[in-house]
Amino acid sequence: MAKRRKVNNMLGLAVLATVYAKPMHPYEMASVLRARGKDRDMKIKWGSLYTVVRNLEKHGFLAVAESVRDGAHPERTIYRITDAGRQEYADWVRELIAVPEREQPKFEAALSVWGVIHPDEVMVLLRQRLALLEEEVAGQRETLAQHCREVPRLFLVESEYDLAIREAEVAWIRSLLGELTSGSFPDLEAWRAWHETGQVPSDVADLMERGSTTD
């Protein structure tokens, strides 16, 4: 089970990773994070960057290295990672690698209530999603192949993982579409009848009723 952290925002992890190599001011942190594409690896709310940096400092994970003034620009505070920050950073990464956490993708949420849409329309929507995913996967494969020639694999495994997840989703949607298209998907006819007659099948109604009593 994941433990409760003093700074639990994933942007905090990204900041610690960024200043691990050298001290930076928040504007430079944001520039480096964008350049590294970290907003694709984790959910980042850029507007909370300064708040996260201050919280990391408050809990002893960052410390002020110096304040500098560059010409007419406002004074900038440069932060360095502390020993406690290095320990927190490494411990956080260990936990994220070792302890699986339940995530809630929007696609999964949609699938949990997809019965409200006619199965014929669902098939159209799934084909649309599949086409977009296949295009995305092809682009990711090309980009990853190019990066493999220029960047050590140590810094590419997150891209490999994301590609593997996308490829698995493509394979699963193709299989699901195959069942829907062939008619082998269980209860497909009852699902169609629900939309064509407006009558909710009794077994579905029972499940909906049971679900409503457990909310």
Results as ranks from 00 to 15, higher is better:
Y50R: 13
A90S: 08
V113I: 15
P119Q: 05
I117H: 12
V68D: 01
E142W: 04
Y79L: 05
K58Y: 13
E142Q: 14
R127N: 13
S67F: 06
R129I: 12
K106V: 15
E142D: 11
P105A: 07
Y89S: 01
W114Y: 11
L132I: 14
E57N: 12
I81A: 07
E75M: 08
L144W: 00
T51R: 09
H73N: 14
I78G: 04
R149P: 04
R127S: 09
F61V: 03
Q128K: 13
K106W: 11
T143A: 14
R54V: 01
V52I: 10
L56N: 07
S48T: 13
M123W: 03
R86A: 08
A110R: 01
E95A: 05
A138K: 14
I78P: 06
E66Q: 12
K106C: 06
Q128M: 10
G139I: 06
E101P: 01
T82S: 04
R54I: 02
N55R: 15
V122R: 15
Q140K: 13
T82I: 03
F61I: 05
M123V: 13
G47D: 06
E66V: 06
P74D: 10
I117T: 11
E66Y: 03
R149Q: 12
Q128I: 10
A65S: 10
R127C: 08
P119D: 04
I78R: 02
D91A: 11
E108K: 10
E135C: 00
E134M: 14
V52Q: 02
L132M: 14
S112G: 03
A72Y: 08
L133S: 01
Q87N: 09
M123G: 09
